[in-house]
């Protein structure tokens, strides 16, 4: 980068995606998302890690923002104000409670002060609230989101004793990783049936090569080889690997290669060692790497 990037800070509901995030669609997911947004139907993104779920949401937030300012004279802007669409992302983890999403009282000098949680902010600002890896969150959070996902579009805040009707632009998007056939961490039906679902998988070899080349800036031939490596490693899923190599890993390898790290070494540090600790599997992946890369 030529110019040094200074850090910037803003409130979550003021985060807009301003530059177009690179995204290569694998099918009609963009159209579906747009249609769903127009109808304010909540969306569930399923897929293994590194298949571009988060990137897709970013891309859509940007794309919809572009579309927010009316494209044709007759068309009403999406949120009615002609503003960009905020994107509030919450990465869920196992200790994430409902109040982490909704908000809580804090102590300060004069007494207590209510602070809105990210979900509340998104509801008020009328943006997309993206709950990443929703299954990881505690069960009580899912109850909170139910009224937001049906015709009510409301958020109840117990502690305040208030109900918020969501702003027009608000949409809930959640993602989860169905994972390794393990039903232990699964979404309840009462939750999952409130969303339309978009399934994500790794892009095909050509698309992935394009993505790698774009994201890492490496040579297209290298990108093609990395993409091939990705395909081969994913063949090992459920036979020693719990997850396939994510596109992200391959991009990292591409970046290192661009920096002059030898191909094999770059793959080793960014793919092989990252993906597994099993020496046997590592060795096998190494062999695939040395077959593909001269």
């Amino acid at each position: 980068m030529a110019t040094k990037q200074e850090y910037s800070q803003r409130n979550v509901e003021e985060y807009f995606v301003t530059d177009e995030p690179f995204y290569v669609p694998t099918s009609d997911e963009i159209e579906i998302f747009e249609s769903a947004y127009r109808q304010r139907v909540p969306i569930l993104l399923k897929g293994p890690t590194g298949t571009g779920k988060t990137r897709f949401v970013e891309h859509m937030a940007w794309r919809l923002s572009e579309g927010l300012s009316p494209r044709s004279p007759g068309e009403a802007s999406l949120n009615g104000k002609g503003e960009r669409l905020p994107l509030v992302t919450v990465a869920c983890h196992e200790d994430l409670t409902a109040s982490d999403l909704v908000g809580r009282y804090l102590l300060d000098a004069e007494g207590t002060r209510w602070i809105d949680g990210p979900l509340t902010r998104a509801v008020k600002a009328g943006g997309i609230c993206y709950l990443d890896e929703i299954v990881e969150a505690r069960k009580d959070t899912t109850v909170i989101i139910h009224p937001l996902t049906d015709h009510r579009r409301t958020l109840t805040i117990d502690k305040l004793g208030t109900v918020i009707n969501a702003a027009d632009g608000f949409l809930l998007v959640v993602s989860y990783n169905p994972g390794y056939q393990n039903a232990l961490k699964d979404l309840k039906h009462s939750t999952r049936q409130r969303f339309i679902a978009l399934e994500f998988d790794f892009p095909d070899e050509e698309r992935e090569a394009i993505i790698i080349a774009h994201e890492s800036g490496c040579d297209p031939d290298i990108a093609a080889q990395l993409a091939r490596l990705g395909v081969k490693i994913r063949n090992l899923r459920e036979h020693g690997l719990e997850e396939g190599a994510s596109t992200r890993m391959l991009i990292y390898a591409g970046r290192l290669i661009k920096e002059g790290v030898s191909h094999r070494r770059a793959c080793q540090v960014s793919v092989t060692w990252g993906i597994t600790d099993d020496p046997q599997v590592q060795r096998s992946i190494d062999e695939v790497v040395t077959s593909i890369f001269a």
Binding site: K232, L236, H239, V281, I285, E287, V288
Partner: peptide, 11 residues
């Protein structure tokens, strides 16, 4: 190693 290698190549 070879078995896994073959698995990777062919799926």
């Amino acid at each position: 190693v070879i078995q896994m290698y073959c698995l990777a190549l062919t799926g």
